[in-house]
Each structure stands twice: as structure tokens, then as C-alpha cells.
Simulated scan of single mutants.
Amino acid sequence: MSEREELPVGSFPFVPKQERAQQKRKALEESGLILFIEKGYEHTTAKEISAHAGVAIGTFYRYFSDKRQLLLSLLEDRIGQMLPPEPEWFSGDPVAKLHSLLEAHAARLDKSGLHRVLPELILKDPEFAEIIAVARKKIYEGILSGINQAQERGLTWPDIDVETVAWSIMVLVENGHQEGVHVGKKVDLYELAKGVCRLVFPPDTLMKLRTEDQNES
């Protein structure tokens, strides 16, 4: 999401063109990111962000209308990175492929840290919550389409409830990383990938797909 209209950011008071001004705006964004992660969105103020960035509060309001606009500007190009990956059932071994996608997703979350702020913002900002809901629906529909294709090829469990399984996968891949944080134990992403794939494929099908992938490589 790189276009302004895709997020409720609003018009910025001032978009800097000079390098020095751009550095100040970047410093405010970096300070906001640090404080939002450390203190949470609600307990972070524009004054604290300004002080952390080493600029006057007036400088903050020169570039951002409020802290919400600053946070949304941070999220603007990162929302897609924070949403769960969509499994790829037909590009080799499904387990290995999903494991790779989950590891890459977890690395992006750890690097950004903004996923810790999202739940708070979603609860307090209905407009932003709707943006996330639409994005999640697209991912769900992609997962659903993939399972339907697998079912048409005769690869899935014969009695599979496609919609229920698609939603279950959505929840698992979306919350696997966060669940590990909550229980204080790192999630085994390979085991998570195996569990997700077993919701779709019988063991003999998974073995067949894995063997075909090994033979091709």
C-alpha cells in the first residue's frame, strides 16, 4: 500500500523537499516508531516524540497533524508485510514452502516491531480497522481459492469443509508468531507449517508432493 488514498492518513501539513527538513521528519518517524513500540500508542504523546527526536513540538505539527497521522505514515508501506502469508500449494513441497513463508513473515515482524501496535490501533480506530479487515478478507479469499483448486485436483481430504479450513489456516498463520510471544516460547514454524498442510492434504498426498518436488530438484 503505497498510495495515500489506500490508508486514512489524510493530508500532511507540510511535505519537506529540502534534505535538512526531510531528516527532521525522518527523525520524528523513527522516534515515533521507538516510542509506540516501547510505550504503546495510547501512552505516547506528540510532545514525547518531539523530545525524543530532538526537535520542538512546533516542528512535529509542521509535518504531522497528530500522532495518528505519524503512525499511519509508518504503516503505509508496511501493512502488507504484517499480514499473514498466503500458502502456496502447487510450487513444490507444500510444507517446506509454507515453512519458508512463515519464517520470512516472522523475520519481517521482528524487524519492524509495528505488529505490537496494531491491536491497540485497531481497537481504537474503526476506520483503520476496516482497512485491515478488507486486506485480511483478500488473503482469506486467496487461501480459499487455493484449497478449491487443490480439491478440484483430487488432492485434499475427501470430506474437507473448504471454507472452515480456509478460515482456520488464516487464523493459524496470522497468530502463530504472536502466540509464541504470549506463552514465552518460540513457535516451531516447521511444525506449524505441517499442521496447516495436514488440514488440507492427507499424509499420502503430502508424501507424494514432497517426493515429486525432490525428484524435480
Rank of each mutant, 00 (worst) to 15 (best):
P158E: 12
L144T: 01
A107K: 13
R116Q: 11
V183K: 06
L189P: 00
E103T: 15
R153Q: 14
E130R: 11
S100E: 13
H177G: 03
S100R: 11
L109G: 05
L172N: 08
A106L: 04
R116I: 11
E127N: 01
H182Y: 15
K137D: 05
E127Y: 01
E174L: 06
L144Y: 05
S112L: 11
G195D: 14
V95T: 12
E120P: 08
S168M: 12
A107N: 12
A104W: 08
I132Q: 03
W157V: 03
N175S: 15
I139D: 05
I169P: 02
G195E: 07
S91C: 10
H177I: 14
E127I: 07
H115C: 09
E127Q: 05
F90I: 07
L155R: 05
A104L: 15
E163V: 09
Y140V: 05
A150S: 06
R108S: 08
E103R: 14
E174D: 14
E130L: 14
I139W: 07
A106W: 01
I160C: 06
T156L: 06
H99T: 15
V171Q: 04
L109D: 08
L102G: 02
D161G: 02
G142H: 04
G176D: 13
S145H: 03
L102R: 00
P119S: 11
G154I: 06
I132M: 00
G195L: 10
T164D: 15
L189T: 01
E120K: 03
D93Y: 01
E179P: 01
G184M: 14
V162A: 06
W167T: 11
G195P: 03
E163C: 07
I131K: 03
P119T: 14
D188I: 14
I139G: 09
W167V: 06
I169R: 01
V134E: 04
A107D: 13
G176L: 03
E163D: 15
L123K: 08
A129C: 04
V183R: 05
K138Q: 09
H182F: 15
K137I: 00
K137L: 05
H115Q: 14
L121E: 00
D93E: 11
W157A: 04
D110F: 07
H105D: 08
V173L: 11
D159M: 13
H177L: 09
L123Q: 13
M170L: 12
V183D: 11
K124W: 02
L109H: 06
A107L: 10
L192T: 02
G176V: 08
K137N: 07
I132K: 00
G113V: 07
D188T: 13
